[in-house]
């Protein structure tokens, strides 16, 4: 026999209705419920020092857009789309203003890469991926892609989402995501091949 749901815990729809009716403080319920999920998304897409600011921005955008939320859909999915589009906007602004310094690889990075690829270390992929150099190498590669390619590559190739899911999150057509995904993957491969060959 199924246990009844928490009778005292209001649903997302109830909370949203309350917020739209003027109860601003009810937004804290949504904030607490979805902060971990949202931070997980934002942390993957923007530099570490920008995560808190971006996560704030996502919740502020979500709050302002609440009257447009349709109850038929899932709030979590709706919030995820806002988060992904906010991160995409961040990169578009960065590339446009060129304020963001493009990361470069030092000799120590190249040494680390050489050692890793020659299989001198006994570490697994999992352990190597946890190292700072691996993250910096990833940032180096992603910094060399456009904002569009970067987002598609992260969502489809690194995150493992389907083309349809990515299209929904970014608000793009499926065909656009397919083309971008193929193109960005080729660009990444070219970058990595050049890196290994030099």
């Amino acid at each position: 026999m199924k246990m009844p749901n928490h009778p005292t815990r209001p649903s997302d729809e109830d909370i949203i209705r309350r917020i739209i009716d003027g109860d601003v403080n009810s937004f804290e319920h949504l904030l607490k419920k979805y902060q971990d999920h949202l931070l997980r998304i934002v942390k993957k897409h923007v530099p570490y020092n920008e995560v808190e600011e971006m996560a704030q921005e996502v919740f502020v955008r979500a709050y302002q857009a609440l009257p447009n939320f349709r109850e038929a859909g899932s709030f979590k999915q709706w919030l995820s789309a806002i988060a992904v589009r906010t991160c995409y906007d961040f990169w578009r602004n960065q590339y446009r203003s060129r304020e963001f310094p493009m990361s470069d690889l030092s000799d120590s990075h190249r040494g680390w890469l050489e050692k890793t690829l020659s299989n001198q270390s006994d570490q697994s992929f999992y352990e190597i991926g946890q190292e700072k150099e691996a993250r910096e190498l990833l940032d180096w590669a992603l910094d060399r892609l456009s904002a569009e390619d970067r987002m598609v590559l992260e969502l489809v190739y690194l995150e493992g989402l389907s083309v349809k899911e990515t299209a929904e999150l970014l608000g793009w057509s499926v065909a656009n995501v397919k083309v971008r995904s193929h193109r960005s993957r080729k660009k990444l491969e070219r970058l990595l091949t050049e890196l290994i060959s030099t």
């Binding site: 570490y48 890793t116 946890q130 691996a134 993250r135």
Partner: peptide, 17 residues
């Protein structure tokens, strides 16, 4: 080597969270 590097980068991406 390219395959190995791609695996490492994918792991590094998931470590960010």
């Amino acid at each position: 080597e390219l395959r190995v590097l791609k695996k490492i980068l994918r792991q590094a991406y998931h470590e960010k969270e």
